[in-house]
Design a protein around this nucleic acid. Structure first.
Length: 579
RNA sequence: GCGGCAUUAGCUCAGCUGGAUAGAGCAACGGCCUUCUAAGCCGUAGGUCACACGUUCGAGUCGUGUAUGCCGCACCA
């Protein structure tokens, strides 16, 4: 059958009568590592410090765990790897958890776990419920995640949507791994873009259109500007997050227009985010950094640090000392500060609030700010680490509809907004599609696919797996509280073993996704898990006559349901009980 | 020109600290509903992992170079 593997059976296999309540995957791995360490000590005492690597083979034929230890020892021992592998296996202590070992390929040692070891994960899940897969590695340390941070100059577009989906999932992942997460949104409500917004609204108030010769060159041309202008002229009341503004109705009152327009658009963005089920703990305003004197204070400290200089009537920061390719202007010739100055002040504020870990999720088109902000923080010399804060950058989103690209252009106003997507394809599908790709690769959002209620659509595929389980449990009608104590010995088919294996990988998957700040790993895992469930479902009946078999299978799918729920929750996607 | 990201099946994309025969989904073709929801399953076909060198037992993965695409390179944000 298999191409010439040397099978070495363990001397003692029998007494698996031992009760295994819960063997986390990691403990199993540690157990095998210990066995190998002892074997290595016997075979190659000189190489005792060699790190033992155990990995999960891609193919089930290669067992549940494999090690390349024999290959690593081949060179120092000057022996054939397969011969070394045989010696290692002979020196391996017996274990209840190991059913079989074999040598394969160039000298891999494959481990096949006993059924009891594989079943353990079901008990583990059913005792922990939705907590299965959660870790406490974060030790309740504080982490702040800043994301979206759109300028209040227009509705959120798809790019912001990607930031919202990815950022929110990051928060959920960090929370699941034991961090104390603060979600923060930074509004750039000061500066030139807001002046431009104010001017654009004012022009609309006065009846100008973008086609008019008097229309400002960089003015915002979108129709939403008309809405803002109309609301202002109609003296509407805006209830924003932290203040209430009433339109003055006077086209010449620039200050009033500015305040109204910003409040109006902030409210719009808040509503969009709420519809996306994304919520923030803290909203920070750029304007507040000015009014509270934090910008000025930072500037004074930078000057005091000696890293600034005056040239051409402007104030410069010597960012080249901190890895930038050229120095940057801090205070412009006409007096105002450039954007990165309040941004540095903002990050000083974050640091002083005690966030030793900060993650900024933003579009890759803002990449250049990273060096500048970090340089400013380093120049202050207040003990901030060089690589602080962390950044997660997402690449551009291209929206496709009917096989054609829908162009994004904020200034032109003809772009797909986040709200458009939510309305058209639904919240779940939008969130899934925007979070299911690696952040640093460009994303093509296919509206037609996302809104398809067919098996093409991975969102429904996953949700359907969950709904199927719920349906089975409902038809069974029994009390699920008996399932955690069910004997699992009847679970022996390849479908069942595959599902058990997948479930056991969940905690590691969550940990990896959190560590790498990569929510898409969860999305892919869920697709695979749903696939295992669907295959199982089609291959075998769960509600069978034999009570022992039925209960064992129900325990397995019940456990699967918890993991599907937990994973979907990490993505912020619903787990419907019926579809 | 400089910097960042990318390049894997016809299309959209995975591929964990280097490991065994590179994987899904869609599209194509062929099967499965008197049985727990066919929003599902099973099978077939589809590849010079952009290219070239290098590192080593072993490279899609690491290094250097080249090509192509996107993004950035303001006294905008």
């Amino acid at each position: 059958m298999r191409c010439m593997p040397v099978i070495a059976m363990q001397a003692t296999l029998e007494p698996v009568k031992i009760t295994i309540f819960s063997i986390p995957r990691i403990a199993l791995k540690a157990h095998l590592t210990e066995l190998l360490t002892q074997a290595a000590k016997a075979v190659a005492p000189e190489q005792a410090d060699l790190a033992i690597v155990l990995e999960r083979p891609k193919s089930a034929e290669h067992g549940d765990f494999a090690t390349n230890l024999a290959m690593m020892l081949a060179r120092p021992l000057k022996q054939n790897p397969r011969a070394i592998a045989e010696s290692l296996i002979n020196a391996l202590p017996a274990s209840h958890y190991v059913a079989k070992t074999e040598i394969a390929g160039a000298g891999f040692i494959n481990f096949f776990l006993s059924p009891a070891a594989k079943h353990a994960v079901v008990r583990d899940i059913l005792s922990k419920g939705n907590d299965f897969g959660r870790h406490s590695h974060g030790q309740k340390r504080k982490v702040q995640v800043e994301f979206v941070s759109a300028n209040p100059t227009g509705p959120l577009h798809v790019g912001h949507g990607r930031g919202a989906a990815v950022g929110d999932c990051l928060c959920r992942l960090l929370d699941a791994t034991g961090w104390d997460v603060t979600r923060e949104f930074y509004y750039n409500d000061a500066g030139a873009q807001i002046d431009n917004l104010t001017l654009s609204v004012q022009c609309r108030c006065k009846g100008l259109t973008p086609d008019d010769p008097a229309w400002p060159e960089d003015g915002y041309r979108g129709d939403y500007i008309v809405d803002v202008a109309n609301a202002y002229m109609a003296k509407e009341k805006i209830d924003a997050e932290d203040k209430h503004v009433i339109g003055a109705g006077d086209p010449d009152n620039t200050a009033a227009i500015r305040e109204f327009a910003v409040a109006y658009l902030r409210r719009e963005q808040d509503l969009d985010l709420r519809a996306f089920d994304v919520h923030f703990d803290v909203y920070s305003l750029e304007s507040a950094l000015y009014t509270e004197g934090k910008v000025e204070k930072t500037v004074q400290q930078l000057i005091a640090s000696g890293h600034t200089y005056e040239q051409d009537d402007a104030l410069w920061l010597r960012t080249t000392k901190f890895g930038d390719d050229k120095d940057r202007v801090m205070r412009k010739r006409e007096g105002g500060y450039t954007y990165f100055v309040p941004d540095v002040a903002y990050h000083v504020d974050k640091w002083q609030r005690g966030f030793t870990r900060v993650i900024n999720e933003q579009g890759a088109d803002h990449h250049s700010t990273i060096t500048r902000v970090r340089a400013g923080l380093q120049a202050l010399d207040i003990g901030i680490p060089q690589a602080w804060p962390d950044y997660v950058l997402h690449q551009m989103v291209t929206v496709m509809r009917g096989g054609e690209e829908v162009k994004l252009s904020k200034r032109a106003g003809s772009y797909v907004t986040l709200r458009d997507l939510i309305d058209e394809v639904g919240r779940d599908a939008t969130r899934y599609f925007l979070a299911a790709r690696r952040a640093d690769s460009q994303l093509i959002f296919d509206i037609d696919l996302a809104r398809a209620h067919t098996n093409d659509n991975p969102v429904y595929y996953i949700q359907y797996a969950h709904a199927r389980i719920c349906s089975v449990l409902e038809q069974w009608g029994g009390d699920t509280s008996i399932l955690p104590d069910t004997a699992l010995a009847p679970l022996t088919t390849t479908h069942e073993l595959a599902l058990l294996q997948r479930l056991a990988e969940y905690p590691k998957t969550v940990e990896t996704a959190a560590q790498e700040l990569a929510p898409h790993i969860i999305a892919y895992y869920l697709k695979d898990l749903a696939g295992d469930l669907h295959s199982y479902y089609n291959a075998q009946q769960f509600l069978v006559e034999d009570e022992a078999v039925k209960h064992a299978r129900l325990a397995l799918v019940f456990a699967t349901r918890f993991v599907l729920q937990s994973g979907l929750q990490l993505l912020g996607v619903n787990a419907p009980e019926k579809m």
